[in-house]
């Protein structure tokens, strides 16, 4: 049974709480309870899975994880969350906890598999033909392609830490949360983001 989620993501206020995600509301909680998992921990994990899965997917794709591996990383992250809750672990800011686990798993995956630092050719082909506007003109298409090309080039010149900081910031995490997920200081996060944006945005330096 699929639980239909209605997601309205707010970039500026995406601060995690223990269970619910600010800016995200969902329907079908009763439907979830009616499923086979009768213990509270299982229900909570499934609820979080349904809530966070799309954004975690996007984060992992943008972190260079191949689409074939993303689902495995996501599921493994939530199964570890279930173990964490069952063993009496703290449940504050579980969203950040899940991202941290997913980040670590993706790092391990990078060591054993080829990493997609850049968008693969087929993806780039897709990007070349896609436009945010449904009725793009030739000039807009050209500008869009140029813009994506510039971002792509800029990203390729960033360090791994800078890319991670950018990706997590795009997911709405505050500097403090990013520092916890990546296990670095807040000032390091701020510096990484400053340098990353300096490279991506012309004329900032």
């Amino acid at each position: 049974m699929y639980v239909q989620l209605e997601t309205v993501y707010s970039f500026a206020h995406a601060n995690a709480s223990s269970d619910g995600i600010p800016g995200i509301s969902f329907r079908g909680a009763d439907d979830i309870k009616s499923e086979r998992r009768t213990d509270d921990s299982g229900q909570r994990v499934v609820r979080l899975y349904d809530t966070l899965r799309p954004s975690l997917y996007r984060y992992l794709i943008n972190s260079g994880i191949s689409p074939q591996d993303v689902e495995e990383v996501v599921q493994e992250s939530f199964l570890r969350l279930y173990r964490h809750i069952q063993s009496g672990g703290g449940d504050e800011n579980l969203r950040a906890w899940v991202y941290q686990v997913a980040h670590n798993l993706s790092c391990n995956l990078h060591k054993s598999r080829r990493r997609l630092i850049d968008a693969p050719p087929e993806m780039w082909e897709h990007l070349s033909h896609s436009t945010p506007d449904s009725t793009p003109g030739p000039e807009e298409l050209l500008l869009e392609k140029e813009r994506y090309s510039r971002i792509r080039d800029g990203l390729s010149k960033l360090t791994q830490l800078q890319r991670d900081c950018l990706n997590l910031r795009l997911e709405g995490f505050r500097y403090r949360e990013i520092s916890e997920i990546l296990n670095v200081s807040t000032s390091t996060v701020a510096g990484s983001l400053r340098n990353a944006m300096s490279r991506l945005v012309k004329g900032c330096v």
Binding site: F11, R53, P54, Y57, R58, I61, N62, P67, V70, E71, V74, A119, M123, H126, L127, S130, P132, R147, Y148, I151, R152, L166, N167, L170, L200
Partner: peptide, 15 residues
Amino acid sequence: LYAYQEAVASPYLPP
């Protein structure tokens, strides 16, 4: 950057 990331991930969303 946000638009680029969305564009990159959009083929795979929703999961």
